[in-house]
Structures are given as structure tokens and as C-alpha cells.
């Protein structure tokens, strides 16, 4: 791919960088306990937590770095951090 003039780029390529591989702990989202407050989505520094059709939330493990903020801040303790199996 030829270089862009002046080291410029359009968005999109950041997603080539699958930061999920950085993870040591993996958040497990328990929809049973979830109150659908969306705090996990709001506070995720990756912006990788998404809402499904029923209003539940799940992380995109391609990008989730496993920081654990979602688990720490979940008011219902519906997210558990578990050792990543690699």
C-alpha cells in the first residue's frame, strides 16, 4: 500500500490492532444478574462493550484488554474476571 501524503489516514485501520490479545483476565458477563444499567459500556476505556437487541451488554473480545473496570464498577456484580485461557 502506497503511503498517504503527509502521514495522514482515514479511520478504520485501528481495528486491525486486535488488542484482545493483551488480556490476562477475561470478563464474563452474567445476563441473569444484569440490570441493563449500561455502566460497563459507559466506562470501558476501549469502547468495546456493546448492547444486544434485548438490552444486555457484552464485550467484543477482539479488543477487550481485560482491565476489569466493567467488573469493578458493575453495581450488580454481574461481571466476573476470570483467568484467560490461551
Amino acid at each position: 500500500m502506497a503511503l498517504a501524503v503527509g502521514c495522514r489516514a482515514r479511520p478504520g485501520k485501528a481495528r486491525d490492532n486486535k488488542t484482545g490479545s493483551w488480556r490476562v483476565f477475561k470478563p464474563a458477563f452474567d445476563h441473569e444478574k444484569c440490570s441493563k444499567c449500561g455502566m460497563c459500556q459507559t466506562l470501558c476505556p476501549e469502547g468495546c462493550v456493546h448492547e444486544d437487541a434485548e438490552g444486555f451488554f457484552d464485550p467484543d473480545y477482539n479488543y477487550c484488554k481485560g482491565c476489569g473496570i466493567c467488573a469493578a464498577e458493575c453495581p450488580k456484580e454481574a461481571i466476573a474476571m476470570k483467568q484467560e485461557e490461551k
Binding site: P11, G12, A14, R15, D16, N17, K18, T19, W22, R23, P45, E46, G47, C48, V49, H50, D60, N62, Y63, K65, G66, C67, G68, I69
Partner: peptide, 18 residues
């Protein structure tokens, strides 16, 4: 392909928990 619609995209290289 894109599950979120943030204007600040996934794949950035900040530390976990930044």
C-alpha cells in the same frame, strides 16, 4: 464488523484501564 459506534475507535494502544 463494528459492534460499537464510538467516535474514538477500538484498537487503540492505551494501557488496559486507561
Amino acid at each position: 464488523a463494528e459492534k460499537t459506534c464510538d467516535l474514538f475507535d477500538c484498537g487503540h494502544r492505551a494501557c488496559g484501564g486507561c
